[in-house]
């Protein structure tokens, strides 16, 4: 209980710092939310409430933005976030097989986080590097021309 409160206080301090750094106008909301996602892994209700005060925005508006963009999350996520492009250019060059290999290796459905909190598996519409599909993005590491037998090897780099 006490440690929860300390955590909350620390989180609030960090949020205040982020807003101070980026700005508190309406236009700053997306960068602020992005920064909070980066820092805490997700945007908690506590964060929304605090941002509502700091930026004079209704909580519903912050929630709308936070749930609209795939790069933001209102749910806790794993230590590593794997994004897999499911769009046509990756799909037609073998993406589907790579994705099943990923799912098998992780035992996760899209959107799920592993029980040990290590992995979150997400699908995405495009990562902007269609020329080297299929593409996997782990955190900020991009892997192109991936084949299914490479999947395990890629994952093992994060052990």
């Amino acid at each position: 209980m006490v440690s929860d409160q300390i955590k909350e206080t620390e989180q609030l301090e960090d949020i205040r710092e982020i807003v101070e750094k980026i700005g508190s106008t309406r236009a700053d909301l997306i960068p602020v939310l992005q920064e909070i996602t980066n820092k805490f892994g997700y945007i908690s209700q506590l964060a929304i409430k605090e941002l509502s005060d700091l930026m004079s925005l209704p909580t519903k508006e912050i929630l709308s933005v936070a749930t609209f963009y795939r790069m933001l999350s209102t749910q806790p996520r794993g230590e590593h976030i794997i994004q897999f492009c499911e769009s046509a250019p990756c799909h037609v060059v073998g993406g589907r097989e790579v994705f099943s290999a990923l799912q098998d290796a992780l035992g996760l459905e899209p959107g799920q986080t592993s029980a040990d909190n290590k992995w979150t598996l997400l699908t995405t519409s495009c990562l902007g590097v269609c020329g080297i599909g299929p593409v996997i993005l782990v955190d900020t590491d991009m892997y192109g021309n991936v084949t299914s037998d490479q999947v395990k090897n890629i994952l093992s780099r994060y052990d």
Binding site: F68, E86, S87, A88, H91, V92, T123, S125
Partner: peptide
């Protein structure tokens, strides 16, 4: 057919609603 499904999925996912 499979491609059409993948393409429509793109629009479904990207639809703002």
């Amino acid at each position: 057919m499979d491609l059409a499904r993948v393409l429509i999925n793109f629009f479904r996912v990207e639809s703002c609603g």
